[in-house]
Amino acid sequence: MAGKSGRTIEATPQDVWKKRIFSWEGMLVVLFLFINIFCRCISPNYTVANVLREMPKYLSEIFLLLPMAYILMLGEIDISVGSTVCLAATVACMATNANVPFVGVILITILTGAVCGMVNGFILLKFPELPSMIVTLGTQIVFRGIAEIMLGSGGSVSVTNTAGFRALSGEIGPFPYVFFLVLICGAIFVVLSVKTTFGRSLYAIGSNSRTSFYSGIKVGKIRFLVFTLMGTFAGIAALFLTSELYGANTTTGNGFEMDAIAMAVFGGISTAGGKGKMIGGLISAFIIVCLRIGLGQINMNPQVVLIILGALLICAVLIPNISAGLGLKKRKKI
């Protein structure tokens, strides 16, 4: 083309190991190892077998983390998932008690979650002016409200025929089914986010939705899809939660949305959108799960555990900010 200066532009990525290790994800891996050593030190019961046995209790929240990470990457937020889990779990219990075959229960539960997600997605699709925070604040109250109506004045339901759910919480060797499922889903979510056009679109929309729209990315459709995905996984989480608790009540899933968001943010996925890696979210989820198991084993007050998690969450965002600020000052002096 005219006016060419013959300048060349470098296009080979430099794979610097140092950079990888000193990335947030690298630090999380180190922290993961550290947490495990720490737990082993404080609790003699912290063995692989024990950890795996206790893990399913916490794993259902990881199902929420996966699509929540996508939602945050989009620059959106969904605070209705806890309520979706509640509603889906209620539906699961009631369907089981109504003698629906277990396959049917699974389908209905997941479908319930998916529909909840679609409702969010649909409102956001039709009214893009609305922030997802407000929309999901509204649906949060509605979804749990519906569960409350279904649960009636007693406010809780127990599964009478637990066979199906017990099968769901089965194990292969020392590994519970759900552990594999989490790993498989996690792997799929990681690959989707880094290797596919869908993943690239997520980051593009989260970084600059207007440029993405102008570039022909179907912004509304992807947003709808991700919120539906969120609901669907809330349904899956509800299934596994029920297979731990064999029942549901009006407070089921309370605060799950916060836990999922906290895991993602701790994993380096910013609520501002367009930043962070799925793998970081996954590692941080396992850090939190291991920490909870370890601290649970020494019978630490669960409230203290929450305080620790809250502090970790704030520090995870605060420390990089502070060090960036210090770095800036240092450079200024030169």
Partner: peptide
């Protein structure tokens, strides 16, 4: 720190 994250942490704390 973004307000939603900070106050979420303090909600627990």
């Amino acid at each position: 720190v973004t307000p939603i994250i900070a106050t979420m942490g303090f909600m627990y704390i």
